[in-house]
Design a protein around this nucleic acid. Structure first.
Lengths: 70, 70
DNA sequence: ATGTGACTCATAGTCCGTA
DNA sequence: CTACGGACTATGAGTCACA
């Protein structure tokens, strides 16, 4: 039950659902390409501010990115 | 729409609903007393790992702490 | 288009206090 | 019991070259 992995999976899922590349998402969220990559792989431990940025770029609520819908 | 303030409000709300003091919550979540204080005041920008710790100590899902239920 | 290690610099998070 | 400050140490933010 690793929260970082949960966030990573949710980001990837919503990103692909929107048909975006990591680079495009990174641009929209005003983040770096490699950083987004790290988040999706569950290696990064992002702050709530980063989660909010990603959620905003993905058009979903921040809380959605923390949900573990196995 | 400050995400930090949202988290702070939710933590405080759930903490008081459980009848815990900040010190007790800090102990349960294995965090520092002053840090929990800062989170509730919305001046801290916690990581998702910290959010998960607090959620666990409060007995709620991590995503609950990011919800803005106006 | 993405994964990865290494890096600098900012800040997350701790610990000492006072009111 | 809580707010708030100041001084620390650990780790996240943000970037790069390269596979």
């Amino acid at each position: 039950m690793d929260i970082k992995a949960v966030v990573g999976r949710n980001v990837k899922q919503h990103r692909e659902a929107k048909g975006l590349s990591q680079e495009q998402l990174a641009f929209e969220a005003d983040l770096h390409r490699t950083y987004v990559s790290g988040v999706e792989r569950g290696i990064r431990n992002p702050t709530v501010l980063i989660v909010a940025k990603l959620a905003n770029a993905l058009g979903v609520e921040p809380s959605k990115l923390l949900e573990l819908n196995d």
